[in-house]
Every structure is written in structure tokens, then in C-alpha cells.
Design a protein around this nucleic acid. Structure first.
Lengths: 195, 195
DNA sequence: CGGCTGCTAGATAGATCGCTCTAGCGATAG
DNA sequence: CTATCGCTAGAGCGATCTATCTAGCAGCCG
């Protein structure tokens, strides 16, 4: 049974990583906001900040990954699911002062050249997301290789829109990228039907 | 006349910001790699690291902005220009060990919630890029509002693909996103012609 | 020559970084 | 009861961070 404190450290760490990135988040800040004793961090995470960071990245990835079945199951088709996804992202972004964008993009860019374990954690999360989304596209009748390419484009549109949205403090990029994503899904479906 | 040392500090700073982000780059590392005396940094940049960072972001933005006329002028149309852009980005990325992605995306994500002057610098650069690309689309006959939306999607595809590519250490996302970008440009042109 | 200015040069302050260390609490087992 | 174990609690270490400080060099002007 996992300790409560350990869970809180990961949750708080994940939230801070999302907003400030890995380098910008100090271990003291994590334990303070988690109301955890300092020593507990190194009790539960002997690997220190790096281990906690990696686990926080993977947890964020799992939580956000759950949005895929949640949204795709409640939408009538993959076109409207894609639209929902971007509209929901835009809403969440503006409501939380542009903090709740991608939980791991900042970390991924920061550490991709300097911290291999963390880079790998981010890569694993991205791959899992691509597979989750790609599976939905395949289930809608799109050929596997085309489904993966489409998944990459949709995720890239979302990630790129988050970068622009956070810098510009506007939902416009997310909404514009969402319309492109919907169009791309439509195009892939049309190709499939008319082949 | 700008001092040689001052220029070198901005150039080295811009290169380091691209690879390590703002928080991950120390001022000592900048002056060391620029072969500049430590005191000179605060002589030329009284605002310290923040001022140097903002100027480096703006310079990177200007340099990368020059790629737009460079590529669009040497391509026969905006479709092939868009394709060139992504293919060139993929090549540059793999050749430099996934370091030369977007020079400011990491900074933009890192500081968007903690450092207003730097966030503004990133926002200004993104807006300038959107205008540069949007102007090319308008020149090809696409309506202004549609041209802006298309520019946002293309830039978002590139930025998002960079995030995935750096984490996955693969050019696949950039190439897949590039094909989507080309398709989106084609779609916008078709809409314009058949209207 | 002397004096002024722009820049170099680096020591160092003060804060913060990640991390290690010891001490002790509380619950459970023997 | 005592012993043990999981966890709490925080002092403090060495390193590193940004920024300031003084001192001095080189070149130009009078």
C-alpha cells in the first residue's frame, strides 16, 4: 500500500513541473506545498529529485492519457471527439491562467539534452499517447500507418498550440489548431472511404 | 556601434537558451563560452540575466524569421515552400543531435507563468512569425483571417513536432507534421480557388 | 604629459540549490 | 514491557546561483 505522503509528493511535483518545468522547481518547494517533511522525500525517492521528477512525469502522462477514452467514448465519432478535445483544452487553459497546458512538454524540452532518464520518461509518455489516439483512429477504419501519422499530427497540433497559447495568453492558437486537427481527421476518413 | 563582446554574449546566450532553457542556463556558463569577462555582462546588460535573456530571445526570433523569406522566395509556391520548411527542419534537427529545434519554445514554456518580460519577448517573436508566414499566405490569395488561422496551424504543427522530436529523438514527428501542414495549405488554397 | 571614458578582470557577497545526516516519534510484534 | 521498523522532522553541508564591488588597463582628447 502506497503511503499518502509519497502520493502527495508526486501529485504536487507533477503540478509544479507543469507550470515551472523541472529545473525551475526546487525540492524544497515541493515538500513545502505537499506539507511533507523534507526527509520523507529522500526516504520515498532514494534517487532524489530525478526519480521524483520521472515518476511525476509518468503519473501526469497516465492521468492525461485517461482523457482519451473519456472524451472519445462520450463523443459520437472521432471527428467530434477531436473537436471536443481541443475545445476542452482551450477552456481549461483560460480558466487556470494558462497554467494547465501539457503537463510534460516543458520538462521534455528542458531535459532532452541533459537528463537521459527524464527524457526517456517523457518519450514513453508521448509514445503511449500516440498509441492511445492512434488506436482510436484505427478503430474508426483508418489504416495503421496512416492512423499513426494522423495521431502525430493531432498531438503536435495540440502541443504546438499550447506553446503559442501560453506565450500569447490566448486561446486562439488552440481553437485554430483544433479546426485544423478536425480537418485532418476528416481528410483521413475520406481517403479511407473512397479508396 | 555595438561592442563585439556584447554581440557574442547575445549569440552564445541564444544558443544556450535553445538547448537548456532559461533557468537551466547560468550566467557563468554564458560568459565562459563567450570568452567574455564576467563583469562585462553587467556592464552591457544592467538588467542582468533577464535583460540578456530577453535580447537573446528577440535575436533568435529575428534570425529564424529570416528563414521565412529565404525559403518562400526560393520555392515556386507556398505548398512547396511549406514542405521545404519542415524537411529542412527535420534535417537540421537530426544533424545537430536534436539541439536545434525552436530557439525560444523552451523559454516560452518555462517562464510563461513566472517572468513577464521574458514571456512578452517570446510572445512578440511568435506574433512576428505568425505575421511573416500569414503575409505569405495572403500574397498567395488566401483571405486575411483564413491566412492567420493557417499560419497558426502551420507554426503549431512545427512547434509541436519539435517537442515530440526532441523527446523521441526522431525526425518522424517533424516529417508527419510537415505532410499535414502541406495538406492544410492545399486545403486553404482550394477553398480560395473554388469560392 | 595628465585626465577621462569604456571596457576588462575577477574576487566575493548573499541566497538558494540538491542532498545527507542524526534524532526521535508512534505503531506493531515478540 | 522492550525492540524493531516505517516514517517524520529539520539542521546543516558543500556547491552553485545571480549580482555587486573595486581595481586596473587601453585608447582618445586636450
Amino acid at each position: 500500500m502506497p503511503s499518502d505522503t509519497r502520493d502527495r509528493l508526486i501529485d504536487v511535483g507533477a503540478a509544479l513541473l507543469c507550470r515551472q518545468g523541472y529545473v525551475g522547481t526546487g525540492v524544497k518547494q515541493i515538500v513545502t506545498e505537499a506539507s511533507a517533511p523534507f526527509g520523507s522525500l529522500y526516504h520515498f525517492f532514494p534517487g532524489g529529485k530525478e526519480q521524483l521528477g520521472a515518476e511525476a512525469v509518468r503519473r501526469s502522462g497516465a492521468i492525461y492519457g485517461e482523457l482519451v477514452p473519456l472524451i472519445f467514448d462520450s463523443a459520437p465519432d472521432i471527428i467530434r471527439a477531436t473537436r471536443s478535445f481541443f475545445e476542452g483544452a482551450a477552456e481549461a487553459l483560460s480558466e487556470n491562467d494558462w497554467a494547465d497546458a501539457c503537463p510534460i512538454a516543458t520538462v521534455a524540452l528542458e531535459v532532452s539534452g541533459t537528463n537521459e532518464p527524464l527524457r526517456q520518461a517523457c518519450a514513453d509518455v508521448f509514445e503511449a499517447w500516440l498509441e492511445l489516439v492512434g488506436a482510436r483512429f484505427r478503430a474508426a477504419g483508418i489504416a495503421p500507418s496512416r492512423a499513426r501519422e494522423l495521431a502525430i499530427s493531432v498531438v503536435a497540433l495540440l502541443e504546438g498550440a499550447f506553446v503559442l497559447a501560453r506565450a500569447l495568453r490566448s486561446t486562439e492558437p488552440v481553437l485554430a489548431a483544433g479546426r485544423s486537427a478536425v480537418a485532418e481527421v476528416e481528410r483521413a476518413l475520406t481517403q479511407e472511404v473512397t479508396r
